[in-house]
């Protein structure tokens, strides 16, 4: 069913971002359709995080458009906070609220932002904590959890606002190798359920097997944008070939 209606839900048009004099993103253009699972790969410093942060306006783009549900969210009249409830984000460093328990972390947004009743918020939070397998840990504080557990709670927290798109910025890069699997497992499940996701990652196997699309970035430009088969199997650009060759060597 999800494959039947492919309508664009997010369009990034001519996105440019400067930090001071440096042009970090140069005319980024791409479209996200409902149910897309897009992996963004590329060398360190190529602007992947900056692009993701621009999409949910943690960084203000210098110019360009970000069209969500037909509206350019960079128009000053748009409510950024409301937009962000529709585009969630999961960070490399988890960023759980350290003054709250696991459960409170996941209830924060339903209660504070969506104005749900406590009991309803609790049910929402529990539902997503169960999904990520952290329902036993509701009374723990973030500093009492392992990295993998923290990241799963962070995913549950992001899901609790029921976003239409979820952005991931290297969700497994801060984890010990043995914990990477548990987080990728959760993400794979979300992908199978049809959640629209944009994932910046260095996990090439995950990008190849789980995503419906792969974007390769270099020096602030999208060099390659296609299916995993196209990008991994038959890259058009020399830069992509070099990048992938280096990765397969390491693997």
């Amino acid at each position: 069913m999800a494959t039947a209606k492919k309508q664009p839900i997010l369009e990034v048009k001519h996105l440019v971002k400067y930090f001071g004099e440096r042009e970090i993103l140069k005319d980024i253009d791409f479209t996200v359709e409902q149910g897309n699972v897009i992996s963004v790969i590329g060398a360190s410093g190529s602007g992947k995080s900056t692009m993701l942060r621009c999409i949910n306006l943690l960084e203000m783009p210098t110019s360009g458009e970000i069209v969500f549900e037909g509206k350019n969210i960079l128009d000053l009249s748009n409510n950024i906070a409301l937009y962000r409830t529709k585009v969630g984000m999961v960070f490399q460093s988890f960023n759980l609220f350290s003054n709250m328990t696991v459960l409170q972390n996941c209830m924060a947004s339903p209660v504070t932002v969506l104005k749900r009743k406590k009991e309803e918020a609790r049910q929402i939070a529990m539902k997503y904590l169960e999904k990520v397998g952290m329902e036993q840990y509701i009374n723990a504080r973030p500093d009492q959890l392992s990295g993998g557990q923290k990241q799963r709670v962070a995913i549950a927290r992001a899901l609790a606002i029921k976003p239409q798109i979820l952005l991931f910025d290297e969700p497994t890069s801060a984890l010990d190798p043995q914990m990477v699997g548990e987080v990728l497992g959760v993400m794979r499940e979300l992908a199978e359920e049809g959640l629209t996701m944009i994932i910046v990652t260095h996990e090439m196997a995950f990008a190849r097997d789980v995503s419906t699309r792969v974007i390769y970035m270099a020096d602030g430009v999208i060099v390659e944008d296609g299916t995993p088969q196209e990008v991994f199997g038959n890259p058009k650009n020399e830069k992509t070939k070099d990048f992938l060759a280096r990765f397969t060597q390491n693997a």
Partner: peptide
Amino acid sequence: GQTEAAMAIGMNHFQTMYT
């Protein structure tokens, strides 16, 4: 990071500060 995470789940500045 925590302030950004709060913003990313839709909190405005006031809500982020308060909670």
